[in-house]
């Protein structure tokens, strides 16, 4: 009873490629959160959080405590800074591979 019902096995491989390939772990410099990051270019960023990391993020906890009226947390500036630092340190490489 799935939404995406592919008729080809290659589609499953595409799903894996686009959602999981080339994610580099980046640790927040300020808290215990760790996320999977992909940067295809300087301005592109893809960030995969996991439930445990999200609970660790002190910035999001602070935002939750002082809600602005909208439930969406746009981004964590500390994690953004940590990702920028990972790029500077050469821990995270910028570059795309054939569109994914």
């Amino acid at each position: 009873m799935a939404y995406i019902v592919p008729s080809s096995a290659d589609t499953l491989e595409d799903q894996r490629l686009y959602t999981q390939a080339r994610l580099t772990e980046v640790a927040c410099l300020d808290c215990l959160a760790r996320v999977g990051v992909k940067k295809n270019s300087e301005h592109h960023t893809s960030i995969q959080w996991h439930a445990e990391s999200l609970a660790e993020c002190t910035e999001f906890r602070r935002l939750d405590a002082a809600p602005t009226g909208r439930p969406i947390r746009a981004s964590c500036p500390r994690m953004q800074a940590s990702i920028d630092a990972a790029v500077r340190d050469g821990q995270l490489t910028i570059g795309a591979e054939d569109g994914y």
């Binding site: 301005h43 592109h44 960023t45 893809s46 960030i47 995969q48 959080w49 996991h50």
Partner: peptide, 17 residues
């Protein structure tokens, strides 16, 4: 059958330059 992957936070910034 809802998996963690379906609901876990994901962020994406498109490079529009």
């Amino acid at each position: 059958d809802v998996t963690d992957e379906m609901t876990e936070r994901f962020e994406f910034e498109v490079d529009t330059t």
